[in-house]
Amino acid sequence: MSQKGTAHFIFQRGTALVMIPLVIWFVIALISHADDTRPELMVWIAKPWTALPLGLLILAGFFHMRLGIEILIDDYIHKPDTRGMLLFLNTLFALILGAVALWSIIAITLIV
């Protein structure tokens, strides 16, 4: 219980820092590939210098999102049972979505 607060704080800031360059890169890259056909898009995503930073962005982003929503739930939901359930659902959401996103990147890399 005791180390939890600081650990959360460090992870939240750590993932934020990592994401600053990644998000900027992703937005710019996305714009320049906005006109791609599906084959072109897949070739681009499959390249290691796209897939790896994109995978990292997904991991850091979903972890950051899950932590942020956890803070929100802790702030507003006080009944222990409701809180416990929502915290669990939040983690589940991040895990499932993160898994699907990562699988998609891997699948594209393998298909191409």
Partner: peptide, 15 residues
């Protein structure tokens, strides 16, 4: 939360 869904749906559709 919504944005995460958008990105994931887009990636999954491409795959």
């Amino acid at each position: 939360y919504g944005g995460a869904i958008l990105i994931t749906v887009w990636l999954a559709a491409a795959a």
